[in-house]
Design a protein around this nucleic acid. Structure first.
Length: 190
DNA sequence: TAGGCCATCTGGTCCT
DNA sequence: AGGACCAGATGGCCTA
């Protein structure tokens, strides 16, 4: 199927709203939307007040325009949501390509969740390994290394050794930084 | 043809 | 008041 929201397959342009409504909307939908429909057929209700009738017509026309406006907004919102979904698909680890069917929305979300969980476990494993490897040599490369600013009391060094990259918000995996926090430190983290 | 997926409309609710 | 968000309903398209 490839549910690619190609514009050609569906009426998605806001400009097409009115035309779409008139031509494609099922009568039970369109009936209460279009101003002319609510006059209930027949001949305009005999002997009515013209001013009142005109005012009612304008109001219904305004309601109709408002409906179109609201529909357009909702359509745009859903298109934006779909764009975000496409962006998510692009970074998901599955085979992309014209010959490959696009992931459905639910599949995209479930895959994304699993992917994040997998990345988290990989990160934990990596931190554990780095801690094992460098745990005994902490002071040599970490807090004192190369004239870089000392870690405690300041921002962490940009790198651990040559390979480990500190990321903002992630705890340093090394043994020293893993010591229990003091009450003061805990307060600082709040 | 049934079922899955999707776009759209619509009314309700919440927020600014 | 107007906009954003949400969920239900509906109908179209596609595939097994």
């Amino acid at each position: 199927m490839n549910s690619d929201s190609s514009p050609s397959s569906r009426a998605s342009s806001p400009d097409m709203d009115a035309m779409f409504l008139r031509e494609h909307l099922p009568s039970h939908h369109f009936h209460h939307l279009h101003p002319s429909s609510s006059s209930g057929g027949g001949g305009g209700g005999g002997g009515g007040n013209n001013k009142l009738k005109l005012k009612k017509q304008v109001t219904e026309e305004e309601m109709y325009q408002l409906r179109l406006k609201i529909n357009g907004r909702e359509r745009k919102r859903m298109h934006d949501l779909n764009l975000a979904m496409d962006g998510l698909r692009e970074v998901m680890p599955y085979a992309h390509g014209p010959s490959v069917r696009k992931l459905s929305k639910i599949a995209t979300l479930l895959l994304a969740r699993n992917y994040i969980l997998m990345l988290n476990s990989s990160l934990d494993e990596m931190k554990r390994l780095v801690g094992e490897i460098y745990g005994g040599q902490h002071s040599a490369f970490h807090c004192g290394g190369g004239g870089a600013a000392a870690h405690p009391g300041g921002s962490p060094p940009a790198q651990l050794g040559s390979g480990f990259q500190h990321w903002a918000g992630l705890p340093c995996p090394c043994a020293i930084c893993q010591v229990p926090l003091t009450g003061e430190a805990k307060d600082a983290m709040k």
